[in-house]
Computed example of a mutant assay.
Amino acid sequence: MKVKNVALSEQTIANEIPAFCQKWKICQFSLFCPALPVAWEAGNSGVSQSAGSSIGVLVNFEPDIHPTSCDLVQMRDELTSILGQTVCLLPKEAIEQSENYIRRQQILDAAIVVYDSGCCHLSEPPELTNPLTAAEQEQALLLDVLIACQRIQRYTSDICWEQFQTCDCTLLQDATVRQLELIGEAIKQISQTTKTQHPEIPWSVIIDVCDCLTCEEHQAEAETIWQAVEQGIPRLIRYIEPLVWPGVPIPPSSDYVSSSLISEPA
C-alpha cells in the first residue's frame, strides 16, 4: 500500500544528499517509510530517533567510521532540514542486528537506495510503501514486548535479590527499568481489538505499572522492580508467546486475570 510520495527535488537527490553522505562518510543512503506512529524501529540500538517521524533513513558508514550519539542527533537534524520532513535516522547495521525479525526484514526489503558508493540511484522522487501491514505491525509490537521480557530475564538470570538491591547493581536496575519502559510503550501501541480478544491479560494494569516504575518523578525502589522481574515478567512471557507464535498453548485465564505485572509477595 502506497502511503506517500516523497517530495524530494532534483537538487536534493543530485546534490544535497550526496554532499551529506560525503560529509559524514556514508557509503549507502536509503529511504523507508516508518511503520509505526512512534519510531520503534531503533529498538535498543541507542541511535537517534524521532517520535512521529514521517520518513525513515538507513545509512551505512564507511569502514572504521563509528559516529557518536551526538553525531547521529546532528545528522538527523541536518536531514530534517534537507528533506523538509521529520526523520527517523538508523544505521543499517542496527536494523540488521535487530532481534525483531518481523520489522527487520520488512524494513530492509522496503528500503529504497538513493545513494550508493558515490553514485545517485534515483533521478526522481521515490514512492515509499508501508513496510508492514496492520497485522504485521501488531505482531512486531507483541514481539517487542516479548523481546524486552526476555532481555530482563537474561539480565537477572544469575543474580539474587540481595545482589540486585546493592549499589553495584544500579546499572542493572536502570537497564531493567528501560526494558519495562519499552514493554509499556509497546503495549500502548497494540490495537484495542487485540486487547479485547485477550481479556485474560490486564493490559491497562501493565501499562500503569510500567509507567509508575519508569516515571522520573517516581523513582521505583529496587524491591518493587525486583517483584516485577520475579513475578510479573515470567507470567507475561507465558501470555505473549502464544500471540507471537500461534499454536503455543495458553494457560487458563484464571491463572492471570486477577494478577498484575507486579504481584503481592506471598
Rank of each mutant, 00 (worst) to 15 (best):
I147G: 02
I55G: 01
A14F: 08
A134Y: 11
V257D: 11
P234R: 12
Q150D: 06
I190Y: 00
F164D: 03
A39Y: 04
G84A: 04
S258T: 15
P126N: 03
L90W: 05
T80V: 06
P242S: 09
E10G: 08
L128Y: 02
I237K: 12
V73W: 09
L72P: 00
Q189D: 12
I225R: 04
S30M: 09
V57N: 04
K92L: 08
F29L: 02
S9A: 03
K25N: 12
V145G: 00
E16V: 05
A266L: 11
E223I: 13
K92M: 11
R178L: 14
C119P: 01
P131S: 08
W161T: 08
I112T: 03
E124I: 12
I262A: 06
L142G: 01
V73R: 11
E181H: 15
D158Y: 08
Y101F: 12
I240A: 01
S98H: 08
E217M: 13
Q22C: 01
K188S: 05
D109L: 06
N100Y: 02
V229Y: 05
I207P: 00
I107Q: 04
I112E: 06
D168L: 11
R151H: 07
H218A: 13
I26G: 00
E41T: 07
C88Y: 10
V177Q: 09
N130D: 14
S259W: 07
K25E: 08
T12D: 05
A175C: 07
Q192L: 08
A39F: 09
A111L: 05
A35E: 04
P126C: 02
E93Q: 13
E216T: 15
L243K: 11
C33P: 03
E99L: 10
I206H: 07
C215E: 13
I102D: 00
Q137D: 08
